[in-house]
Design a protein around this nucleic acid. Structure first.
Length: 794
DNA sequence: GAGTTTGAAACT
DNA sequence: CAGTTTCAAACTC
């Protein structure tokens, strides 16, 4: 009745905060309510662009993406079924990065241990340099069954339920604020929404949690690690666990942690505080009491929603054991995704600081930054960290080229290192030219990283998968002959990921040089002669770059652009289909029939488009005719060529299969098929293939917009040989998104230019998704926000 | 590993 | 803008 609790029960979270109960909770603790989360989420759903900006914190962004992904996934009926399968499917998908993310999310949902919360949590932990210094032990530990408490794991049914819940909310999610659910369905929706909100809240909380975790890590206090684990475990259950994890952590950190306090509040809002959590141990008695009180109130309020989750929660350690390996893998994926996102978020955070629409956001950003800073000191090696982090943007570019495989990521990681050092970064950033979009992003990222160490950490984390590969790559690099190395990489399936050149006359100062074109310095593996593309010749490199850019602003932009924005999710196919991604300028093949890597379109894993001037196009990813078949004549041709296509497809499939097999061999984890990565183009990682994405990757230009975004999605699973790597890595390509990617080129993708002339796509269009374009659905495209530099760089 | 082919990049 | 040359990757043997 009068009790605030009752009021809360009926009210949605938004009201929740305002509700007396919420106030009461607040009164209990000095904690400040974290409203931003909800807001941000809603915004995110509404508009992608805002989201990224909003969530300055990488964590948040990650959550967002995950959420989005989920939504998408949820849309897919099949998703709920099996996380693993979803992962595989993902690989098949065009947007590797996004898919990856999605798959991860799905997995998380499905997998007992995995929870969105975890994602957020993990990333956080990672951020804390954790990844870097502490290596994977911690992570792995987390992955270890012991560490993870999986309430759910046990039953798939639970997983499904969660998935369904998650998925359901997706649609309503946006509306939820307005709708509170009058009818049964609505009620159900409300519940879902609540759960989502919780999750979201958790996401927000996660940031704080993350920060806390980071703190813990930094402090090196054993408790911290445990707490972290607890968080991880808690995270398993998205919403519910989240709360539990938070509580304990909070207790530990209580000391100053406003963030923690906030978290508690959020948790309280979430309604679930689980004393059961192992993490609770950490909590102090006083805090426990507090939490209990909170729980009571919350429970009252949240009863409906909780009931479901509680069941899940009920579980306990036993569940932890469930599928630890899977969890680990998922983590790896998450990490990458998160990392990419984080990177993007960081960037955004920087941008946001100035632009942040909402105070909340700005605050969050600030927090994040602070966290990052904290992390900074933690960094082990300046360069190592840098390399990884900065790389994203550049990689995106690279990704645009070929996202072939995870290994690409490795290469990219290396490249990142290079990039970091590149002086250009600053120049590029400043450069107004849009063409650089991708470059800018990459550079911006690098700059941001530099500015914010924390960000770098996060990036690195994101690239964990890549890192691992990087290690491998390092080993490989030791080898002398570049060709051999290259071949190795190729064998690995990545082929292009690592940029290695063999320039003899260009001095590595022309676009002929892959390293230079990718915006990275040449390194040992390169067999170039008279190379000027080295830090020593920074000035020269920068000057040359500027010169080239002056000639063609898009010279360093990803060659492959994803159309994610335009078509995006609306047309699942669009994103999936190669058609979604296009080569920036199109190819001019005459003898290769666009069936060999001579063709940049094919190399980038994208189909030929109108812009292509190729002859006898048989591009397996989509023929010039096919993609734009507008005319009947063309249709006829298509039919005639159908046979050819089938052949091409078969060829492609073979390639993919081979790659997949390789990946499998390398890593037990399911890998995304090359195809996907290629299609994705994203940024994320490597070159062109990368899935769009996000990635990373999609980043930048091409990739940026994509689902993967570029992130990116990163490359498929890299397959690092080490077990650890495997677990962590299953990263998707994204490349990354692509990283950045490609990342992912924005769907708009190809802005066509006259076929004859080079097209100049405004960077903005490519990379930075314009808010206007993005529709609610676009929200799905997480990657976009993260990677796309948005050209704010200036 | 050497040589050839190919098409982008650069140049005119 | 078109044509030519240069270049280095991709490919073949």
């Amino acid at each position: 009745m009068d009790t605030p609790e009752r009021n809360q029960i009926g009210t949605p979270k938004a009201k929740f905060e305002d509700s007396p109960v919420f106030n009461y909770i607040n009164s209990l603790s000095p904690i400040k309510p974290v409203k931003s989360v909800h807001i941000t989420q809603t915004f995110s759903s509404l508009s992608f662009a805002s989201l990224p900006s909003v969530f300055t914190s990488p964590h948040v962004s990650a959550h967002k993406e995950s959420r989005f992904l989920r939504r998408h996934n949820t849309s897919d009926p099949s998703k709920p079924e099996s996380s693993l399968e979803s992962g595989n499917k993902v690989s098949a998908n065009e947007d590797a990065a996004q898919l990856y993310i999605n798959s991860e999310e799905l997995r998380e949902d499905c997998v007992p241990g995995v929870s969105t919360g975890e994602d957020s949590v993990e990333p956080s932990s990672e951020h804390s340099k954790f990844v870097i210094e502490l290596p994977r032990n911690l992570k792995y530990d987390c992955g270890s069954p012991d560490c993870r408490p999986t309430t759910r794991c046990g039953t798939e049914a639970h997983c499904e339920l969660e998935v369904a819940d998650l998925s359901a909310p997706l649609v309503p999610y946006v509306q939820k604020t307005s709708e509170e659910g009058s009818s049964n369905d609505e009620a159900h929706l409300q519940i879902i929404c609540q759960t989502l909100q919780r999750k979201e809240g958790t996401g927000c909380d996660w940031e704080s949690l993350i920060s806390d975790a980071a703190d813990l890590l930094i402090f090196d206090s054993p408790n911290g690690t445990e707490a972290f684990k607890g968080l991880m475990q808690n995270s398993l259950d998205p919403a519910t666990r989240f709360c539990t994890s938070l509580a304990p952590q909070l207790t530990q950190n209580d000391v100053n942690d406003e963030q923690n306090v906030q978290v508690l509040d959020i948790v309280g809002s979430g309604g679930q505080l689980e004393t059961e959590d192992p993490s609770s141990q950490y909590g102090e008695a006083s805090q426990l009491e507090r939490t209990e009180q909170m729980e009571d109130h919350l429970n009252n309020c949240m009863v409906s929603s909780q009931s479901e989750k509680e069941d899940n929660k009920v579980e306990t350690p036993m569940q932890f054991n469930c599928k630890p390996a899977v969890l680990n893998l998922q983590r790896g994926l998450r990490r990458r995704c998160l990392d990419f996102e984080m990177a993007g978020a960081r960037r955004k955070s920087l941008d946001n600081v100035s632009n942040s629409s909402s105070n909340m956001l700005s605050q969050s950003d600030e927090k994040i930054t602070t966290n990052d800073k904290q992390l900074v000191p933690m960094k082990p090696g300046g360069e190592s960290s840098r390399c990884i982090l900065p790389g994203i943007g550049l990689h995106l570019n690279a990704l645009a080229k070929t996202s072939k495989d995870y290994k690409i990521i490795k290469c990219e990681s290396l490249a990142y290192g290079r990039q970091l050092s590149l002086p250009n970064s600053t120049a590029d950033i400043h450069s107004p030219t849009g063409g650089q979009g991708p470059v800018h992003e990459s550079f911006s990222s690098a700059s941001s990283e530099r500015d914010m160490d924390g960000t770098e950490n996060g990036v690195q984390l994101a690239h964990d998968a890549s890192q691992e590969p990087a290690f491998l790559a390092n080993e490989e690099f030791n080898q002398n002959s570049p060709k051999k190395k290259r071949r190795r990489f190729e064998h690995a399936g990545e082929t292009e990921s690592c940029k290695r050149c063999n320039c003899k006359k260009s001095k590595c100062l022309k676009l002929y040089c892959e390293c230079f074109a990718a915006g990275v310095y040449c390194i040992e593996p390169c067999s170039c002669q008279e190379c000027f593309n080295k830090p020593i010749h920074e000035d020269t490199v920068l000057a040359t770059r500027k010169q080239i850019e002056s000639r063609n602003p898009l010279a360093f932009a990803p060659k492959v652009i994803r159309s994610s924005d335009s078509v995006p999710e609306l047309g699942e196919e669009s994103s999936k289909t190669p058609a979604s991604a296009r080569h920036k300028r199109g190819c001019n093949c005459k003898k290769s029939s666009c069936l060999k890597k001579y063709c940049e379109c094919y190399q980038g894993g994208v189909g030929c488009s109108i812009s292509c001037r190729c002859e006898g196009c048989k591009n397996a990813f989509g023929r010039k005719d096919g993609s734009f078949i507008g005319t009947e004549a063309e249709l006829d041709e298509e039919e005639a060529e159908a046979c050819e296509k089938s052949v091409a497809e078969k060829h492609q499939q073979k390639i993919e299969i081979q790659k997949n097999e390789e990946q499998r061999l390398d890593s037990a984890l399911p890998t995304t098929p090359l195809r996907l990565s290629r299609q994705m183009v994203s940024l994320p990682f490597s070159s062109k293939n990368k899935p769009p994405r996000s990635s990373v990757f999609s980043i930048g230009g091409s990739s940026s917009g994509l689902y993967t975004s570029q992130k990116l999605g990163k490359p498929n699973i890299l397959r690092p040989e080490s077990k650890f790597e495997r677990h962590s890595q299953t990263v998707p390509e994204d490349e990354m998104p692509e990283i950045l990617q490609g990342d992912g080129s924005p769907s708009t993708g190809v802005k066509t230019a006259s076929p004859n002339s080079k097209r100049v796509c405004p960077p903005n269009s490519d990379f930075g998704p314009s808010p206007g374009r993005r529709t609610g659905r676009k929200l799905i495209l997480q990657s976009i926000p993260s990677f796309p530099s948005l050209t704010p760089q200036h």
